[in-house]
Design a binder for these strands. Structure first.
Lengths: 347, 347
DNA sequence: CTGAAAGCGCTTACAG
DNA sequence: CTGAAAGCGCTTACAG
């Protein structure tokens, strides 16, 4: 491949001059600059960014380490991150830790010397295991975490508050026997959402031990949990799923079982992925502004990269309730008002 | 930040020995190796990958340049790429060209010296403009292109064949006045799908100038096109949309207008994004095996990276028909067989 | 087995 | 304005 030495030789100047001309440095006469640029064009010279960043001590890139790259959730997250990063002329180096805590450390280490900052989302554990992996001196922001670790800032979601809000919505709709399909046991979001649910049930209905079925954040897991619920003896008239994908799987099973949504059973999710609005009936959920989460985290990272002396901070974003037909037993069931009545009687 | 010199000093050896010990090189006595590894651990040393790749002349990373990072399509594509890349221990450096042909060149150049290979998807133009931007000597594979450019291989989709197949399906279902909502004018996929549609209509129905409404691959664009169709005087009993997102927007408008799908109007899309199966009614579409497209391209790139003397190749993947309820006027309308009859009479 | 040296491709003080 | 030199952090022949 052609290097800056080739360009310098072709133009009859030193590599120093070539570098200056190619980098818009003013200390070059127009003539030599033109000669150098011509040579570069003729040789189809493209600078080696790896070498550049080694000497410039900056990469103009930021690393993003995620548990997965797939699905609407991460897609939106990356979109938000990219919006801010691109505006600052930064490239994104994405890394997939494939859900493995061990690979997280590997992925983070592989970023050293390639990026100027790091965005990390590690949904399991308390984040202290990240402390060892994070390169000392590299600005970092934890995504979806609710407190800082070492020098890393954090941007999180108010999962507990969100879970409380949607549970209260179910209660307000008249549902009284509300079950919860939880997320993965070690997942931080899942635990917090479950906690918010339990608290809200206790505060509103006064029930101390609501039904909680384990789940795994997948559509199949939601379906399986719904089957368990139906097979069990405990009656229920609503299900709050810890995320939307499970709610979708859950709804399919309920309908197959002949249960009408929202009349026999109300269903609510969490996240508001695009699919949620297309489900039939459309799914009530807590909208997590995922792209804003990403954009916000990136903005904070930029600030830290400029001033790395600043103390790490924590930001918590509030999700918002999106009430749709899947829980519209009382107020929102504009489509089949008669059936609402029947169902209410039926329960 | 701590460098290998710090480790060497701490362990009382030369940087050469430190490097060897840290890279599992056998030429180190167990004792010195242990001493060096201890020092590295104590200092929390993490190697500078940028410097490593400069001397090793390889980055263990591959660059992916896409028109956008958002949406299910790219999400699945990246998933497929990552599956293969990860198995080979390669990182992914993603770049978003934000739909701009100009930014494509910038994004590609920025990859020089950071990656060992390049995957590029540039949906507009004929790909020859890429020729100038692709660094000479860097293995590259074009995604979604149907012929090679320079040294770059290509992996494409049989859009024409797919469009013909789904058009024939509509005809087989009894639809006779089939309109097409096209994709962006300069988009290669869109043009090929339109061509396949036109050919199939001519071959089956004998119609030479079927109705074609411009679109833009977005949901809003599909809705707008559907409104145009309804407002126009030309009768239609089916719509083949150039992609699924437009089909979704299209269906919403049709239903609002009181048209029953599939009885009054059949609707078909292209891509089979996950949303397609969730639409009501579920959408008939051509499944493009997007993740396989990505995995396939990555596999080819790996082969090129091993043997860069090989001649560039072209691979075309065939999409498969997924018949769902949105076109089930004749055979698949298991839900409302009576209405099928009515609708057929009605037309 | 170990170390001194060269070099990867670039940029940037430092002289002139 | 221009060039020679040092250096970014590493690896790898080359000697010993």
């Amino acid at each position: 491949m052609v290097t800056i030495r080739d360009v310098a030789r072709e133009a009859g100047v030193s590599v120093a001059s070539a570098s200056r001309a190619l980098n818009q440095n003013p200390n070059v006469t127009p003539e030599t600059r033109a000669r150098i640029q011509d040579a570069a064009r003729r040789l189809r010279y493209i600078p080696h960014e790896g070498a550049r960043s080694l000497t410039r001590r900056r990469c103009d890139a930021i690393g993003v380490v995620l548990p997965d790259l797939f699905g609407e959730y991460f897609s939106e997250l990356v979109r938000g991150i990219d919006r801010v990063a691109h505006a600052s002329g930064l490239q994104l180096l994405l890394s997939n830790m494939h859900g493995s805590p061990h690979e997280t450390a590997t992925a983070i280490r592989a970023m050293r010397g390639r990026v100027d900052g790091l965005l990390v989302m590690s949904p399991e554990g308390d984040g202290s295991h990240l402390h060892d992996a994070l390169p000392h001196g590299l600005p970092a922001v934890l995504l979806n975490d609710d407190h800082t670790h070492g020098e890393a800032s954090a941007v999180g979601i108010d999962n507990e508050g969100g879970a409380r809000a949607i549970t209260e919505h179910l209660v307000a709709q008249g549902y009284r026997r509300i079950a919860h399909i939880a997320g993965p046991r070690h997942n931080r979001d899942a635990r917090q959402r479950q906690q918010g649910f339990v608290d809200a049930i206790a505060a509103t209905i006064g029930e101390r031990g609501p039904v909680i079925v384990p789940g795994d954040f997948t559509e199949a897991g939601g379906a399986e949990a719904a089957r368990l619920l139906i097979a069990g003896r405990v009656p229920f008239d609503a299900i709050f799923c810890a995320n939307d994908m499970m709610a979708l799987g859950c709804m399919a099973v309920l309908e197959d079982a002949g249960l009408a949504i929202p009349d026999d059973v109300g269903v609510a999710g969490f996240d508001d992925i695009p699919l949620a609005g297309y489900a039939s009936p459309p799914l009530t959920t807590m909208k997590v502004h995922i792209d804003e989460l990403g954009a916000h985290a990136m903005t904070i990272l930029l600030a830290r990269m400029r001033d790395d002396g600043a103390a790490p901070t924590t930001h918590i974003l509030a999700p918002t309730l999106v009430a749709r037909a899947s829980t519209a037993r009382v107020k929102f069931d504009y489509r089949t008002p008669s059936r609402t009545h029947v169902a209410t009687e039926g329960n």
